[in-house]
Design a protein around this nucleic acid. Structure first.
Lengths: 252, 252
DNA sequence: CGCGACCTTGACTAGATTCAAAAGTGGTGG
DNA sequence: CCACCACTTTTGAATCTAGTCAAGGTCGCG
């Protein structure tokens, strides 16, 4: 793994405030409060479950760099991936108001994770109601993504689901400057993909083949290249509205 | 339809504060603020979509009486039910922080709906940060239910999904006193059920037959009777933890 | 009484899983 | 440096689950 420069807290806060401004204005005082709320930045190698199911975290995690997933297991061992999170995302901000984690959070690549103690978030919510609403908004956008995934699992074909996931990840990664033309890196196995879209790895592979043969996307190891965005959107029946809080205006 | 006495605002607020106390204490001032935030109570006959997809509501809705669903349609006409809401539930509190509804809300039975203007909620969030966090918590519990449904659609068998839905609805209705022994009323068609659990109505019917023949539940018109809760829980691989905010302690 | 909405069932089809095997990829240590 | 190993990808064949199509039955209501 190539060396990764540690993200500076200042730049993390910069990115975070830029994002929260999609909800509403963020004052200098509020920005400062966020800065002070950032306790530390931890690093995790890929595979680490850095938030455990059933735990009661006393901090919330913001991904500064890397790629993480929310995962849950059924008694029988089946796994469901509930969401993917990229740099700039809070991945368990809801644990600030929910007493127990109903799922784990796992680093899928090497991750840098900024920690915000709940005690500091309480202070923010006491002093800066508008900023508090902005954080609430962030968790509401996560819920909107959950709903879109519900529609996918409930009513989209397997082909559409894979296409939809690629659409979503492309636009989210583009918004944070992690794409080059139509290419982005998605370091997950086909088994991970299957656990996200409710399919077996074998069937994911077949649908990938179909997407490849239709000339829509090309996947080479972890590099995904979208050959035709209109074709991909159509294949996925994709409507970006639900991602308003996570992507660029012009991509909506 | 038999006449339904209109719920008194005072008793609605009583029920709401009781629920929010699961998150933390609610002071007399806070309770009073909630009372003043309740603008009016509207009634809707079954089938009414009283919140429209794509709209930007200026109020949030609390179900005072009845049964409602969150629904979304795909371009092809497929429908997915994203959540069910019973008396005492906010069904679109997230619209307070999210600019646009990504789904509609539909009355499934006759509903009485209490309306809280967003302007009043802004005031609450400015003056009562703790109460504001309690409302945030309520939306976070909704998100936890979304996640449980994601697991169902992604990884549970069709048989388990139906059993799981009955488990969830039974415990939620029991918590608000809408059950008699093991019986509750669920006024939805098998098609609605299918749109909630990602199946065709025909297949829902078959799974219902299996549940019946296994002696687990009996369904007569809208009356669902759970013949063996342990068997139902087992069939659903049900773990109530995610419902902590919606059900009684002793049912966890 | 007859109509429409919903439920129920059977026969057939399509989509996804399971099982199995082979080939590719990257990392490790001798 | 290369042989080996674990993991992942790819493909085929058989099986099973859920969907589709179609017909009859039940219930409540005008």
């Amino acid at each position: 793994m190539r060396a990764m420069p540690t993200m500076q807290p200042a730049s993390i806060i910069e990115t975070l405030t830029a994002k929260l401004q999609r909800f509403g204005p963020v004052s200098a005082d509020e920005k400062n409060a966020l800065s002070e709320a950032l306790d530390r930045v931890d690093e995790y190698p890929p595979g680490t479950a850095f938030v455990i199911e059933g735990s009661s975290p006393s901090t919330s995690c913001l991904i500064a760099e890397g790629f993480a997933g929310r995962v849950r297991f059924l008694p029988g061992g089946e796994r469901q991936i509930l969401a993917f999170h990229v740099a700039g995302d809070f991945c368990d901000l809801h644990s600030f108001v929910l007493p127990k984690m109903d799922h784990a959070i796992q680093a899928l690549t090497h991750c840098q994770v900024a920690k915000f103690p709940h005690s500091a978030l309480v202070e923010i919510s006491e002093k800066f109601p508008r900023l508090s609403r902005a954080l609430w908004w962030d968790t509401a956008v996560d819920a909107a993504v959950h709903r879109e995934w519900l529609i996918g699992l409930g009513r989209r074909t397997s082909y559409e689901r894979i296409a939809h996931l690629y659409c979503e990840m492309f636009l989210r990664l583009k918004a944070i400057g992690r794409t080059e033309d139509g290419t982005f890196s998605l370091s997950v196995t086909q088994e991970d993909l299957g656990d996200a879209v409710g399919l077996t790895p074998v069937h994911v592979n077949r649908m990938l083949k179909q997407l490849r043969e239709a000339g829509v996307v090309s996947v080479i190891r972890d590099k995904v290249t979208i050959l035709s965005m209109p074709a991909l959107r159509k294949a996925a029946r994709f409507d970006a509205a639900y991602l308003a809080g996570r992507i660029l205006e012009e991509d909506l």
